[in-house]
């Protein structure tokens, strides 16, 4: 298993004693959280428990009031989403991932276009970008574009699950070390959900650390290697995947059960 091979290495991301206060309201209190290479960590908690706050601190949307973040063992100060990206943290949001009117290829390479030429006379190598997009999607197991559909088609023509999959494929291809999936399967059909969960596992197999945020415990239990449960801004605990049933998890999220 991938995690055993790198057991000695520090976690990809490690958050220590993170606290966040908004005025007098305390959103997070001393939360420790870590994800290793090749591991899917499900971050669980009810609405308002502090999941989003923790992720927003990690992605540079706002800073923690106190606490420390380490990426691959080194202390970092994440001040902006751009900086989080530069550190290899890639987030896939439910609706924000792609530009619907643009093609699969153009979305895949958006902001990282492959160009040739000098100075102001630079143009995109669309052929190469198309080929690389097909290869990358094939690589993560998205077969659709090698069997018929074209990567030059607009993303709007694709289903929600396919769009999520492309966004995941993009993060994997461009070498992100931490992938954050924020409710990736809400609003998807059963078949679509299976695909997104499959690509999540593929991303993990390729050595990424994955944070999986979802309300759907059934989906979570299919992919998670570990659960981190947060309640009222405090960490309830870390539990290995398979050690708890879905109803156990539900009870711990709502606070019906403590351990």
């Amino acid at each position: 298993m991938a995690t055993e091979a790198v057991n000695g290495a520090p976690p990809v991301v490690e958050m220590r004693a993170i606290s966040k206060r908004f005025g007098t309201v305390s959103a997070l209190e001393g939360v420790d959280f870590a994800v290793r290479r090749g591991e899917v960590c499900a971050l669980l908690g009810d609405n308002g428990a502090g999941k989003s706050t923790l992720i927003k601190i990690l992605t540079g949307i706002f800073p923690a009031t106190s606490g420390e973040i380490r990426i691959n063992g080194a202390v970092v100060n994440i001040r902006s989403p751009a900086q989080a990206r530069a550190l290899g943290i890639e987030t896939v949001y439910q609706d924000l991932a792609l530009v619907n009117l643009m093609s699969v290829t153009r979305n895949f390479f958006l902001g990282r276009e492959v160009t040739t030429g000098v100075g102001p006379l630079r143009f995109m190598r669309l052929g190469e970008m198309n080929t690389r997009t097909e290869e990358a999607l094939h690589d993560i197991g998205i077969e659709k574009f090698s069997t018929g559909r074209s990567v030059t088609e607009p993303v709007a023509k694709l289903s929600g699950g396919e769009r999520q999959s492309i966004a995941i494929g993009r993060a994997v291809h461009f070498g992100a070390s931490l992938l954050i999936l924020d409710e990736p399967t809400s609003a998807l059909s059963v078949g679509e959900t299976e695909k997104v969960l499959h690509y999540t596992v593929r991303a993990k197999e390729r050595g990424m650390a994955v944070i999986f945020i979802s309300h759907n415990l059934h989906h979570v239990s299919k992919v998670a290697d570990r659960y981190t449960i947060i309640r009222h801004g405090r960490k309830v605990g870390d539990y290995p995947g398979g050690s708890l049933t879905e109803s156990d998890l539900g009870a711990m999220i709502t606070g019906e059960r403590e351990q």
Partner: peptide, 15 residues
Amino acid sequence: FAVGGNRDSAAAQGV
């Protein structure tokens, strides 16, 4: 095309 199609997505990709 990106900023006109979806400003937030474009910004998230570093455009």
